[in-house]
């Protein structure tokens, strides 16, 4: 337990002594803010038009701020996360492998699992910071409108679970290479495939379509953004995370039998 804490603390320190955390968080917030501005601005234009055009106002959900601003915002944020998370995770093992520090680290009396968990916790902490800074967007909506708080809370829960899944995949790809670019590209590629899978459902048979949809990342975030907490979605992300943590552990152990 103490070892996990020590490693997490050390990793957090290096996130913040290097520009990595600042740059990733800032860019994430800028892009999120830009999307939010567009969503909110178009919502207010729509509201103006609706005040002159009663037919428009009758359209279902069009003037619901939760449906037209908050929900798409979460969708946009998850895509930005897809782009940014590999940059947070890529250095975790690759850098240690490249500089050789892993040799020293693994000859201390600590277990491989403690190392992985420590790194996971550190990265998740940065991610939580990033996510919680974006809360200004829903707060602004609350100042000017009356969104439902439920979907906001579940939306953030969903983003958090999805982010953790991204992090474990990123840790895994970082553990298999000593090149950070390769690590980032791999994790981005895999995440993107898991994401895009959802789009091929439209031309697939019903059974295969359902299977693909259950594997796809996109199929499991939508419920949260709507305000629905489905245990299937939670379990999906938990399995996704633990699978890649487990694979990372295997990779670390593989040095024992690899020549």
């Amino acid at each position: 337990m103490r070892n996990c804490y020590l490693i997490a603390k050390k990793e957090l320190q290096s996130y913040f002594t290097s520009p990595v955390a600042y740059v990733v968080i800032t860019i994430f917030l800028i892009i999120t803010g830009y999307f939010f501005y567009n969503l909110f601005a178009s919502f207010s234009t729509l509201s103006f038009q609706a005040s002159a055009n009663p037919a428009l106002a009758k359209q279902r959900n069009l003037l619901n701020v939760t449906e037209t601003v908050i929900r798409p915002l979460f969708g946009n944020m998850s895509i930005i996360m897809l782009l940014m998370m590999p940059l947070l995770t890529m250095r975790l093992f690759s850098e240690e492998k490249k500089s050789g520090t892993i040799e020293l680290l693994l000859t201390y009396p600590i277990s491989d699992m403690e190392v992985i968990i420590g790194k996971f916790v550190a990265c998740t902490t940065v991610f939580i910071l990033m996510l919680s800074a974006s809360i200004t967007c829903p707060i602004l909506v609350m100042v000017f409108g009356e969104p439902e708080t439920g979907p906001i809370i579940t939306g953030y829960l969903g983003l958090f679970l999805m982010g953790s899944a991204f992090i474990s995949l990123g840790i895994f790809t970082s553990s298999i290479t000593e090149n950070q670019i390769v690590a980032a590209t791999l994790s981005f590629g895999v995440l993107f495939l898991f994401w895009m899978m959802g789009y091929s459902v439209s031309f697939m048979g019903p059974t295969l379509g359902r299977i693909i949809m259950s594997i796809s990342l996109i199929g499991h975030i939508e419920g949260f953004a709507k305000g629905v907490i489905d245990t299937t979605d939670i379990i999906y992300y938990l399995i996704f995370s633990s699978l890649f943590i487990f694979l990372t552990l295997r990779v670390m152990e593989s040095k024992k039998w690899r020549g």
Binding site: N3, S14, S99, L104
Partner: peptide, 25 residues
Amino acid sequence: YLPENVPLYLDMPVPDYLSFVAGLK
């Protein structure tokens, strides 16, 4: 153990680094 090319965490202050190792050990 001191490995050959002395791999240390370069972005840490000396006492912080040593405290980190002390904890792990």
